[in-house]
């Protein structure tokens, strides 16, 4: 019988919501989305479709901006952006 065992309070495997829980995922990028303000019609399709939530909009009516610390460079925002007169307000450029 092992008498050295000490009974401790049970440890719950409880996690807490954390920004960047997988680290600074911006490191994953090989291309980055670049915002071109004059082509933006504030339709927010980029915001709706960004899987990561790294398209940020402070309030309705404001221009979107990108959180490059975590943006994974998937290109979804660029693909869905209608832009103005067929000129997209987002484009992918190499890192």
């Amino acid at each position: 019988m092992n008498e050295d065992i000490e009974l401790k309070d049970p440890v719950l495997p409880l996690g807490r919501p954390t920004l960047g829980s997988a680290g600074e995922t911006g490191d994953w990028r090989t291309y980055r989305p670049k915002f071109i303000e004059e082509n933006c019609i504030k339709c927010y399709k980029c915001w709706l479709s960004c899987p990561e939530g790294t398209i940020r909009v402070d309030a309705h009516g404001e221009y979107p901006y990108i959180d490059y610390v975590y943006c994974k460079g998937c290109g979804v925002c660029v693909h869905v952006c209608p832009g103005r007169k067929k000129q997209k307000a987002l484009e992918m450029i190499p890192e």
């Binding site: 920004l19 960047g20 994953w28 960004c50 899987p51 990561e52 909009v57 994974k72 998937c74």
Partner: peptide, 26 residues
Amino acid sequence: KITEMMERPNVLLRGNFACAGCGLSI
């Protein structure tokens, strides 16, 4: 309405382990 959607809390914090372009995240 997009305005309504924008007012809702952000439930998926950025910088997670999903692959780039993940449909499940959307």
